[in-house]
Amino acid sequence: MSLFPETMRTPRLRYERIDDAVDAFERYAWTREGREARERETRYVTTTPDPHPKATADALADHGDAWADAEQAYWAVFLRPGEPDASGDPVEPGDRVHVGVASMDALWENRRVHTGVELYRPYWGRGYAGERARALLKVTFEVLDVEVASVAHFAGNENSRSQMEGWVEHYAGSEDGYFRNAVPRDGGDSEPWDLRSYVITAADYRDAGGAPEVELDPEDVPKPTAEPTDLDRASGRDEVDDGDSDGDGGASA
């Protein structure tokens, strides 16, 4: 029995357990070394580009093991039909447009969950990170019944800082602290990362009305979105609206 929902749906996105949803080559197309924008996507995370598909396959297998042990959950994030793809064309029913990864670490002994997201560069600036945050908060407090959800970013990552502060404020959360030299960088060869952390409690979440727009294990996962992103509006927004990724490890933060 899985403690995590296998699928989820938010207004513009759908989520599927990653090791079942994508194969190594589909994931590697985004994580490979040398892909344009991959270096930028991983600038403020501990995740590094994959050198070959075998590394991607091993990571997916690890994700499956962690899911089975109820220690971590990783979901592949897809656009719902009607939402514009990177070229601005509406996604058709049956299309699978993979835009990133949502994740959570379940820290059971602390009754705490740490959440993260990795969005591929063509899909920054659309507000998907905050939409994904609501889905993971619903899992945290309504399924796993823990008391605290946390998220963090490295110092200097103003993109993630801006979008995190937006949805943390929505739920009346707070900054948890600023931790100097918190995470090693480049295997210890570079200056360690400073980390800024935020928390939302179960009481905060309930008082803010929860996340009624999030559906867990919906019967019709690819159901078309009712309100697709307005790309003309999104393209005029500063990139900090969405951010590179949450936390210290991108999808594993």
Rank of each mutant, 00 (worst) to 15 (best):
D19N: 12
G247M: 06
M1Q: 09
A57D: 11
D186E: 10
E36C: 07
E109H: 06
V146P: 00
Y128A: 15
P122N: 03
D58V: 04
V143S: 06
A182R: 13
E92L: 15
A149M: 12
G173Y: 00
D189I: 03
G243R: 04
G188I: 07
R32V: 06
P53F: 02
V151E: 06
P11I: 09
E213N: 10
A21H: 01
S160G: 02
T47N: 10
H153F: 13
R32G: 14
V45T: 15
G188R: 05
E191M: 13
Y128M: 06
V151P: 00
G187L: 01
E191I: 08
R9H: 01
L3Q: 11
S160I: 06
R17N: 01
R126K: 11
D62L: 10
T7K: 14
V146S: 02
A37W: 12
L119A: 02
W75M: 08
P93K: 11
A61C: 05
R38F: 07
A66H: 11
V113D: 03
S162R: 08
V168C: 08
A202R: 15
A129C: 10
L231E: 02
T225Q: 02
D23M: 08
V45E: 04
V101S: 01
D50A: 15
E118Q: 13
D20V: 06
D220Q: 09
E215V: 15
D95M: 05
D217K: 11
L216W: 08
G125W: 01
R121V: 10
D217L: 12
E227K: 09
G125A: 07
R112T: 09
T229G: 02
D241R: 07
Y198H: 08
T7N: 08
Y120S: 09
Y171Q: 07
R180L: 09
Q72K: 15
R161S: 05
G94Q: 08
V183W: 13
G94T: 03
A211C: 07
R38C: 05
G250E: 03
D23R: 03
G209T: 12
A61M: 09
V146L: 04
S197I: 04
R237N: 10
E131H: 06
Y123W: 14
Y74R: 11
G249H: 04
A66V: 04
V22A: 10
D194G: 13
A208G: 10
P49T: 07
D189G: 05
R237I: 05
L119K: 04
N110E: 14
E26T: 13
A102M: 10
T46N: 13
M104Y: 01
E131I: 04
A61F: 05
E131T: 04
F179N: 00
D207K: 13
A102W: 00
D207P: 01
F4D: 02
K223M: 12
H153Q: 12
V221N: 05
A211Q: 03
G210Q: 02
D241N: 08
V168I: 15
V99G: 03
G188Y: 01
G250Q: 09
G243L: 07
V143F: 01
V221Y: 13
D85Y: 02
G210T: 03
L144H: 00
Y120I: 14
P184N: 06
H63W: 12
R206L: 14
P90R: 05
D176N: 15
L119C: 02
E158W: 08
P84S: 11
V77Q: 01
A152L: 03
T48N: 12
G94V: 09
W67Y: 14
W67I: 07
F141V: 02
A234F: 10
A21F: 00
D176I: 07
